[in-house]
Amino acid sequence: MAGKATTSTIFIEHLSVICQQDAIAALEDGGIGSGDIVVLRGLGPKGGPGMGFASWFTAALSGTGLASEVAVLTDGQLSGLNRGLTIGQITPEAAAGGPISLVIDGDRITIDLDARSVHLDQDAEELDRRRRNWRPPQHGRERGWLAIYEQTVQSLAQGAVLGARHRPAAADPRPEHPEGM
């Protein structure tokens, strides 16, 4: 298990924040090693868009023999086949500005398995500074089904269902029907 275990509380000393596109490359290049925690973000319902699986990474991690030595945190889904310390479906997700979006390389994280909590060990001033500088990811979608999905999907904590779309109502383009129709 990654970090130092004291009963069921784990203190992670070093952290690798990796976007999903770079995770496998970092694993192949030796950029991830024993005692690291890997934060995979952008896999939640809004960030995917859709609920992305992080199990592809945990399977690759297992293939390198590091599954029991590296922890994985993600806002994406995990399958039941994961090995080692894997925590998924973190809400609010990174694309919605959740705490997982504020984590940077070198941060310290405390994982308390009994309390079912993950805590980013940073002072309030630093977290406030990061929140002020945070910007939502831009996928460049303004129209189409994926744009509608991104704009309306709710948090995984609310079931990742689609909510109301907030935009001004357009005038009804249909002609009025004559009376009696």
Rank of each mutant, 00 (worst) to 15 (best):
A54Q: 04
R41S: 01
G144A: 11
V153N: 00
L162F: 12
H119P: 03
A2I: 10
C19M: 15
F53H: 03
V118M: 04
I10D: 06
C19R: 13
D29T: 14
I24L: 07
M51T: 10
I90Y: 00
V153L: 07
D105S: 04
R165D: 08
P168M: 14
A170H: 06
G140P: 03
R167M: 12
K4H: 14
Q89C: 10
L156S: 03
W56R: 00
G76R: 00
V161G: 05
E125M: 10
D107P: 00
G42R: 03
A160S: 13
L102A: 07
G33K: 12
E125L: 06
S8L: 14
T152E: 04
G65P: 06
G63K: 11
L120H: 00
M51I: 13
R130L: 10
G159Y: 02
L66T: 07
G140A: 12
N133M: 14
S34K: 13
R41K: 04
I32E: 08
T7A: 10
S155Q: 06
A164S: 13
L146F: 07
R167D: 12
E13F: 13
I10A: 04
R83G: 12
R165T: 09
L66E: 08
L81N: 06
Q122Y: 02
R129K: 15
D22T: 13
D172T: 10
R131C: 01
R141W: 11
G52D: 05
E93D: 07
G88I: 02
V72A: 09
I87E: 04
E126T: 10
V118T: 03
D121Y: 06
D36R: 03
G30F: 08
V17Q: 00
P92M: 06
Y149W: 14
I111E: 07
A5F: 15
W56K: 01
L73Q: 00
R108V: 08
G33N: 14
G3L: 09
G48R: 07
R132M: 15
A60I: 10
I37V: 01
D112L: 04
A67D: 01
G30M: 05
A164T: 14
D114A: 13
A67L: 03
L27K: 01
T9R: 08
S16I: 08
V72L: 03
G88T: 01
S68M: 13
I87P: 02
N82W: 05
A147R: 09
P136H: 02
I111A: 01
L73C: 03
R174A: 07
D105Q: 03
P136R: 07
I90S: 01
F57A: 11
R130C: 09
P175E: 11
M181N: 11
G48P: 09
A59Y: 12
W56H: 11
R174W: 13
A2T: 13
S117T: 13
K46E: 02
S55E: 06
D36S: 08
A164L: 14
H139L: 13
G163N: 10
S62W: 14
D123V: 10
V70S: 01
M181E: 12
P49Y: 09
P175G: 08
A25L: 11
G33E: 11
T7W: 15
V103L: 00
S117H: 03
G106P: 04
E126M: 09
T7R: 15
H166Q: 04
E179P: 12
V70M: 04
L156P: 05
G88H: 02
G98H: 10
